[in-house]
Design a protein around this nucleic acid. Structure first.
Length: 603
RNA sequence: GCACCCGUAGCUCAGUUGGAUAGAGUGCCUGACUACGAAUCAGGAGGUCGGGAGUUCAAAUCUCUCCGGGUGCACCA
C-alpha cells in the first residue's frame, strides 16, 4: 500500500473513532481528523467532488492560526479557478461546528484555522483521563515481529549492538502502546564456523568453561582461537571437522556449545537490565534454531523451480538486482560445498515468522550497510510467495556511531568499546554531574538519579536524530541540560512533579478550564497533537519526531512556568493550571516511556 | 566501475512526505533570580539549503547532471 493511501485510511479510522465517541459525551479525539472531515464535506458541498484530500496540517505560521488547509491549491487547478476563489467557496460551505473559532485566507490561498477554546479543553479532558495521554488503541491490531538486538554468542556486546537494541526497544514500546500484538525476536548469532574453532580450542586446551566468570574471558578465548585458526593449518583442519561434529549434534561438542550459549545469554541479559530494555531470555531465537529448516527450504524452492545452479551454487535470481558488471546478481542460498548462508537463514526465519508466528508486519532494525541484503530478502520472500500483500516487511536502517573525529567510535587505543563500559561511563558522568549540582545528596540518591539520567541520555542521543544518519558521540552534548536532551526533558518532568507535590488542594474537576495567557494556550494546543503524532509514527516509525515533540512540549512548559504563576494564582486559575501541569506530565511520562526512558520525582 | 545513503547557520541537527519570509539547540552578544527548582526564561546577530539545469501556481523536498563524504557489491554474517 502506498504511504499516502495508508495515511488516508488512518485518517478515516480516526474520524470514525471520533464520531462514535462524540455521540456519547463530546470528547474530541483527533482535531486534525475532525478538520479533515469538515473540509471534506465542504469540498463535496461546494464542488460536488469528494476524491480530493483536505490537506490539513498544523499551521507553520502560528500567528495566523492553529491548523491550515492547503486544499485550495489542488482544487484550483482542477476547477480552473484561482486558489483564493476556491478557498472562499470552501469556507462558505464549511458545515457549522464547534471546533473552529475563526478562519482566514492568506497568501496565495492558504486557509488558516483557529480552534475554539472548547475544542482545546475537550481534547485536554480526554488526555487527562487517559492512562496513555490519549493514545488510541488501533482499530485493527496487528501481530508485529520486531527483529532487533542480535548480539553474537561468545563475544562481549559492543557499541555496534547499541543502536539496534535502543531503536528496536522504542519501536516495540510505541507499537505496543497502539495495542498491537508485539513479538520481540532477538536473532542471536549462535551458529557458524567460528564455533568450530572455539570449541576445538577449548577441547585441546582442556579448559573448564564453568570456571569462566566473565564474558571478557570468553572474548579472550575467542581471539586466541581465531589467531590459531588463521595461523595453524592443522588446527584449522580440526576446527572445520569440529563444525561438522557440531552440526551433526555430537554430544560432547554440543554440550560445550550449550555452555557457551548459556554463558553468553547471562551476559546479554545483564546488559539488557542495565539498559532497561524489554528483551529477555524468552525473546531469544538464535540462528541455530532454524538449522533443521534450511534443507527443507532448499527442497521447497527446488520443488517449485525457483532455484538456478550457478557456478555450482544454488541461487535465486531476482529481477532488478545486478552486480558491478550489470549481470544478474544472484541470492546464494546454498554454497557449492553444500553449506548454507545467512540469506538462507533469513529466508527461513521470515517464513517462520509469517507462517508460525502469524506476523502481519515484520520490522528489521539492522544497520544501513545491510540494505541490499534486505532489499533482496524482501523481494525473494515475496517472489516465492512466502509473504503475500497482507504482510508488511519493514527494514529500519540506521547509521554508524562515530567518535568526535568522525570515524567509527573506538577507544583511544583503537579498541572496540564494550557496551558494559560505555553504560558505566554514562552513569558515572551523570553521577558526577549530579553531585556537582547537589553536593549534599547521598551516594544512594545520586546513583539512583545517575542511572536514569545517564542511560536516558545515552538512549535519547540515539533516538533524537533521524536514524539513517550517523551519530557523532558527544558526552557533553548528550548530558547537557540545555537543548534537545534527556536531562532537559527530565528536568521539566521533575519541576512538574515538584509543583504537584506542593499543591494539596487539587479539586479533581476535569471539566472547567481557563486557558487565557498565550503561554497556556501554546502549551495546550501543542499537547493535544500527541495522540495523532503517535498514530503517524506507528506507520512511519520516525521515532525522532517524538523526541522533537517532547522537547517542544518541555520548552513550552518552561515558558508557561516562567510567565504564569501556578500555586499563587486565584483558585479557578490555579486549578486549571494544575491540570495543564498534569496533562504535560502525562504526555512527558508516556512519551519518555515510549522511548524507553524512565522518569524521576526529583533530581 | 556499478548501486544505495548523506550534504541545511561556525558546530550538532529539525524541516509534518510539494506549500507562506527555511527553523531549533549549541557557541557568540544583551537582559531577568526578595514568586511554584536560574539545571530556567526573554531578546540579538548568524543562510547562495553542496553547484547547475529541469518539472509547476509553488522545490531544501521530485527529475537529470556534476562535486564532496560514507557504505555495499557471488559462495563471511
Amino acid at each position: 500500500m502506498p504511504l499516502w493511501l495508508e495515511f488516508l485510511v488512518l485518517a478515516k479510522k480516526i474520524i470514525y473513532n471520533a464520531n462514535v465517541t462524540n455521540q456519547k459525551n463530546f470528547v474530541v479525539i483527533a482535531v486534525s481528523a475532525q478538520l479533515e472531515s469538515l473540509f471534506f464535506t465542504a469540498m463535496t458541498n461546494a464542488f460536488g467532488k469528494s476524491h480530493w484530500q483536505a490537506l490539513i496540517q498544523v499551521a507553520n505560521k502560528q500567528q495566523q492560526g492553529d491548523y491550515q488547509s492547503n486544499a485550495a491549491f489542488a482544487l484550483a487547478k482542477q476547477l480552473q479557478q484561482s486558489p483564493q476563489a476556491v478557498a472562499e467557496q470552501l469556507l462558505a460551505h464549511l458545515p457549522t461546528n464547534d471546533i473552529i473559532e475563526e478562519t482566514s485566507i492568506s497568501g496565495p490561498g492558504f486557509i488558516n484555522i483557529r480552534l475554539t477554546p472548547a475544542c482545546v479543553s475537550a481534547s485536554l479532558i480526554n488526555m487527562l483521563q487517559s492512562p496513555q495521554a490519549g493514545i488510541n488503541p488501533s482499530q485493527h491490531p496487528e501481530t508485529i515481529v520486531v527483529d532487533y538486538g542480535s548480539p553474537n554468542v561468545a563475544k562481549a556486546m559492543h557499541v555496534g549492538h547499541l543502536r539496534s537494541t535502543i531503536i528496536g526497544d522504542a519501536l516495540v514500546r510505541l507499537l505496543n502502546a497502539k495495542g498491537h500484538h508485539l513479538i520481540r525476536q532477538n536473532h542471536v548469532g549462535d551458529w557458524g564456523t567460528q564455533f568450530g574453532m572455539l570449541i576445538e580450542h577449548i577441547i585441546q586446551e582442556k579448559l573448564d568453561l564453568h570456571s569462566l566468570d566473565s564474558i571478557q574471558e570468553l572474548n579472550t578465548l575467542y581471539q586466541a582461537s581465531k589467531k590459531r585458526f588463521d595461523t595453524d593449518e592443522v588446527f584449522a583442519k580440526a576446527a572445520k571437522e569440529r563444525v561438522v561434529a557440531l552440526q551433526a549434534g555430537t554430544p560432547d561438542t554440543l554440550a560445550l556449545w550449550q555452555i557457551l550459549v548459556a554463558k553468553s545469554q547471562e551476559h546479554f541479559q545483564s546488559i539488557y537490565n542495565q539498559l532497561g530494555v524489554l528483551l529477555t531470555q524468552d525473546d531469544i531465537r538464535g540462528e541455530s534454531s532454524y538449522n533443521d529448516d534450511l534443507p527443507k527450504l532448499i527442497d521447497d524452492l527446488e520443488k517449485h523451480k525457483y532455484l538456478t545452479i550457478s557456478q555450482g551454487a544454488k541461487v535465486l535470481f531476482l529481477e532488478g538486482f545486478v552486480d558491478k558488471d550489470k549481470n544478474p546478481l544472484p541470492m546464494i542460498l546454498q554454497k557449492s560445498d553444500g553449506g548454507y548462508l545467512y540469506a538462507t537463514t533469513d529466508m527461513v526465519t521470515a517464513k517462520y515468522r509469517i507462517e508460525n508466528l502469524k506476523a502481519n508486519r515484520i520490522i528489521y532494525v539492522v544497520d544501513c550497510r545491510q540494505r541490499q541484503h534486505f532489499d533482496m530478502l524482501f523481494a525473494a520472500v515475496k517472489h516465492v510467495g512466502y509473504a503475500d500483500n497482507s504482510v508488511r516487511l519493514d527494514y529500519v536502517p540506521f547509521g554508524a556511531m562515530l567518535g568526535d573525529d568522525r570515524k567509527p567510535f573506538k577507544t583511544r587505543s583503537g579498541q572496540v568499546i564494550e557496551l558494559a563500559s560505555l553504560i558505566d561511563e554514562a552513569i558515572k558522568r551523570a553521577y558526577d554531574l549530579y553531585k556537582s549540582k547537589n553536593p549534599d545528596a547521598t551516594d544512594v540518591q545520586a546513583m539512583q538519579v545517575a542511572k536514569v539520567v545517564g542511560v536516558g541520555a545515552l538512549k535519547y542521543a540515539d533516538l533524537s536524530n533521524d536514524k539513517i544518519k550517523d551519530i557523532v558521540f558527544d558526552w557533553e552534548q548528550m548530558l547537557a541540560f540545555d537543548g534537545n536532551t534527556a536531562p532537559y526533558l527530565l528536568n521539566a518532568y521533575v519541576r512538574i512533579a515538584s509543583i504537584l507535590r506542593k499543591a494539596d488542594d487539587q479539586d479533581g474537576n476535569p471539566v472547567s478550564w481557563l486557558l487565557e495567557s498565550p503561554q497556556e494556550l501554546d502549551l495546550a494546543k501543542h499537547l493535544i497533537q500527541f495522540p495523532e503524532l503517535i498514530d503517524q509514527l506507528s506507520i512511519d516509525l520516525a521515532i525522532h519526531r517524538l523526541c522533537q515533540f517532547l522537547y517542544k512540549a518541555a520548552n513550552l512548559f518552561h515558558r508557561f512556568y516562567e510567565h504564569c504563576p501556578i500555586l499563587n494564582a486565584n483558585h479557578e486559575t490555579k486549578q486549571s493550571r494544575l491540570k495543564l501541569c498534569l496533562v504535560t506530565q502525562n504526555v512527558l511520562h508516556t512519551g519518555l516511556n515510549l522511548l524507553g526512558i524512565e522518569t524521576l520525582e526529583s533530581m
